[in-house]
Amino acid sequence: MHLSTDEIILLQYGAIKLNATIATTWLLMILLVAGAKHVTRNLGNEVRITRWQSLLEIIVIGIRNQIGEVGLRQPEKYLGFVGTLFLFIATANLLTVFPVYEPPTGSLSTTTALALLVFVAVPFYAIRERGLPGYLKTFAEPTLIMLPFNIISELSHTLALAVRLFGNMMSGTMILAILLIVTPFIFPMLMNMLGLLTGMVQAYIFSVLATVFIAAASGTSDTINEDRG
């Protein structure tokens, strides 16, 4: 029984360890890049397009519409970042259908890295949108007294993002491992299916929350300020 895939060490060369998290992440990256390469190899704009291209269009347009619905005015600017986050987490979580695979998102180091990306991306997009003084001014809203609380909330968002994804994915594999001991026949399979659903929902929520934080900081939103928590 292990808490995260960090503890499985595949190769060790002196002080440098290659654990299962890194290996799976690299495999995922190869899979995603090769898939994207394969799909975009021959794009066309005729009436009949290839199946892969229509899959790609469904995904990209879907993500763009979701970003737009959250309240950002020009979804294309954020499509690359949020879309990559969503695709990576969704692929990482969905591949749990394969027996020996353990999701890298079930390790706190991966989720912390993803949350840190969001932590950096929020000021990046906000400064690009409203300039450095405008961004710094959002910390002093509504009054200057709220300054420390705004900073704390910024940090706690990052922590919450990381722990939420980690907890959900870790609980999935953990419950599966416990169920295999208790009722090893059909029930683990049902929980695995539930785990697939949770994985998709968590991927969606992670990217939506990233969008919400970016939107709230860049001030291009109108409806989502009550979602900050």
């Binding site: 979701q66 929902v201 968590q202 929520i205």
Partner: peptide, 11 residues
């Protein structure tokens, strides 16, 4: 959408 995001927050 708001329900899902809110549920994730509570969860």
């Amino acid at each position: 959408r708001t329900l899902f995001v809110g549920l994730a927050m509570i969860e």
